[in-house]
Design a protein around this nucleic acid. Structure first.
Lengths: 198, 198
DNA sequence: GCTGTTCGCATACCGGCGGTATGTGAAGTA
DNA sequence: TACTTCACATACCGCCGGTATGCGAACAGC
């Protein structure tokens, strides 16, 4: 494949990116069902033909967008956690970062509200486990192995904590003052602290 | 109003009930978007005219169904909790009942998956606060007032716990063995216990 | 550099869905 | 009995997701 042959590949990537970009913006602003394909392709400057050339349909475009959003959140959480050296601080920092990151309305609607309904909960969970939820489970496993928290099945605990943070993020975004964020973090910190071996 | 005048009222109620009944069944089995109005009215033995005479549209029918489901869950939780005399046992019993009640697939898809996406999260939250979530907040408030748990803002804590149980219920239903239920309940019990003043 | 092929996308079209406007007959009223 | 109301049925519409097809530019081989 020559250099010149990359012309089409770049154009292809550019079109695909325009679709996910505008799809993400519109899905976040109006919700999955409220936004039509016509609106997306118009915003992206292409036609439905392009969309169906790159994706299997509306739900598949949404899936690509969701994957992108979850990856970003996971990266932010991982970056914040990796900046810490102490395993326990990595957990708390990761949780705190997740809580603030998912407070963005765009992230919320796509990742927490429409995601499960559009893709089905099982599919959504699979994506979630590939994202930030995986870091949570890994951190808990490491802490259990190190004896910092009591040895116990990790999966149930991870889901409890993940769900707690998801719902808290939604609540904070809806009626969230700075005080509510503080109180929520305080309460979550206490719950996390209770895991430690004394 | 004479006895004879109640004829229409009874028929009316019967038709409305058939719609919510079949709507609930189909929404639970296939999800909100996958089931069409034609299928619902056919199962209920009426036509779309009847549906639009009783409800404002598809979303309004779903709202009525959701309200019904949430009320049932709230009643089960309240009944189980009221059977206990100790306030702390009321909380734990209520949580345990909620966890098992929401494991039903029908309850899950309507209440936890489609609910927020169809009605919007804020509307869904309003219904949730009128249901089982209210009992949780009330129980926590009573325990805080009684000095059993540390005095603290209740709303953030209630949302954390509510979200934890919602997600745990979804996980249990998806891949839930009896062992997972036990482990989840053990983990949740520990979290609840950490709230107690020592 | 000419020709055949592939590829990325546009155009045109379809079926089905939620929603609405209107008809109709039985129940209720005076 | 004549009139009104009400609970629904019938018929219809616009829109949206999805598909089939057309087409021009980009590449490949000679």
């Amino acid at each position: 494949m020559s250099y010149a042959s990359e012309q089409r590949a770049r154009q292809r990537e550019q079109t695909r990116h325009a679709l996910t970009r505008e799809g993400r913006r519109l899905f976040a602003a109006q919700g999955y069902t409220a936004v039509g394909l016509a609106e997306i392709v118009r915003a992206a400057g292409v036609t439905k033909g392009a969309l169906y050339h790159h994706f299997e349909g509306k739900a598949d475009l949404f899936r690509a967008v969701l994957e992108e959003v979850q990856q970003e959140v996971a990266d932010r959480v991982a970056a914040a956690a990796d900046a810490e050296s102490d395993p326990w601080t990595q957990l708390t920092t990761g949780c705190r970062t997740f809580l603030t990151a998912t407070t963005e309305p765009a992230v919320q609607r796509i990742m927490l509200v429409d995601g499960p309904a559009v893709l089905g909960w099982e599919t959504w969970r699979a994506f979630d486990e590939a994202g930030a939820a995986r870091h949570l489970a890994e951190a808990l496993t490491a802490l259990a192995d190190a004896g910092v928290i009591a040895p116990q099945p990790i999966a149930p605990l991870a889901h409890l904590l993940s769900g707690a943070m998801n719902e808290a993020a939604l609540w904070l975004a809806a009626s969230g003052t700075a005080e509510d964020l503080n109180d929520t973090w305080t309460a979550l910190s206490r719950l996390l602290d209770s895991l430690r071996v004394r």
